[in-house]
Computed example of a mutant assay.
Amino acid sequence: MKPTLFILAAGMGSRYGNLKQIDGLGPNGETIMDYSIYDALRGGFGKVVFVIRKSFDKEFREKVISKYENHIPVEVVYQELDNLPEGFELHPDRVKPWGTNHAVLMGKDVIKEPFAVINADDFYGRESFGILADKLKELEGKENHYCMVGYRLHNTLSESGAVARGVCEKDENDYLTSIVERTHIERVDGVIKYKDAEDYWFELGENTPVSMNMWGFTPEYFNYSEKYFEKFLELNQGNLKAEYFIPLMVDHLISTKTADVKVLDTPSKWFGVTYAEDRASVVDKLQKLVDTGEYPTPLWQ
């Protein structure tokens, strides 16, 4: 069975204001998501599941899903604030979404095979999808063995300013031991450094593996996530901004030795529009990939 690609797109409506503004960055108005699905299809994925907000379902189906329907099976699930476990009620003042791992939980009823999780608006690169699909096929029928694509830090920096990255530590067998979110990483005088909460600078190696939210799981991950979400809610009842992130869940599973996570190295360059100034650079990068024959144009015939 081919693995499924699970795309986190529930934040898209709030970020762009309206789906009409999903940014066409490719030569024929392609979005970054178009390239991800194209790469996933040729990498060996068999289905796409989107998690979105119900409020823009109609527009999303018309403007986004219609492109892919003749190429790959597509399903949609919804992330809503009031989608909580039994016994929990939504705080009336809560407006912030519950975070990436809550979004992942929404796929529980439609995903029964190994699956990848990605962000809708990040460019991950052809090689990464192939590497991840191959690993997920190996995990068919297995449990408690997960994976993530670890990008080489120098392949993820923005030319426009500092970035936040999940800096990964791994053991000698390439299994993840920890992820620490570094919120200010940039190249300073030719050297990559991060600034900590006390404003001290520390150097990072060019090839330090970082998480760009490209994960591989098997279906029992949903059960762990559901149980841990209940604990998360109990601990954060009064915190209206607390978010249930994927690394939080993964870190819990690693620290309790419930599961292991293989870090998969990729030569792909990651890019996205972190700053408004990044847009022109992303357009240029996509144009170059088309010019060198990496992608056809238009992408979806």
Rank of each mutant, 00 (worst) to 15 (best):
H91E: 06
E89A: 00
C168A: 13
G166V: 01
H71Y: 15
T100A: 13
K285S: 12
V163P: 11
G26N: 03
A116G: 08
E80K: 11
Y221R: 12
R187Q: 12
I118S: 04
T292G: 01
R126S: 12
F232K: 04
F60I: 07
V210Y: 10
A197I: 13
M1T: 08
G46C: 08
Y200E: 11
C147T: 15
Y146L: 03
L240D: 06
P27A: 10
S178G: 01
W201S: 03
M212V: 10
S211A: 15
I179V: 14
I185K: 02
E277L: 04
K285Y: 11
I72W: 05
N70Q: 14
K112R: 05
S66H: 02
V163I: 15
M1P: 02
L136K: 02
K58W: 02
N173C: 01
T4C: 14
N83G: 09
F222A: 01
A40C: 07
Y16G: 06
L240E: 03
Y146W: 07
H184N: 08
S255I: 00
Y146Q: 04
T218Y: 12
E181L: 08
Y221E: 10
E86G: 03
K108G: 01
G141M: 13
P27S: 06
Y224R: 00
K269A: 10
Y200T: 12
L90N: 06
N101M: 15
P92K: 05
E143T: 15
L264H: 12
E140R: 08
E75W: 10
S128N: 09
V74T: 14
Y224S: 06
T218N: 09
M1C: 07
Q79C: 11
P267Q: 10
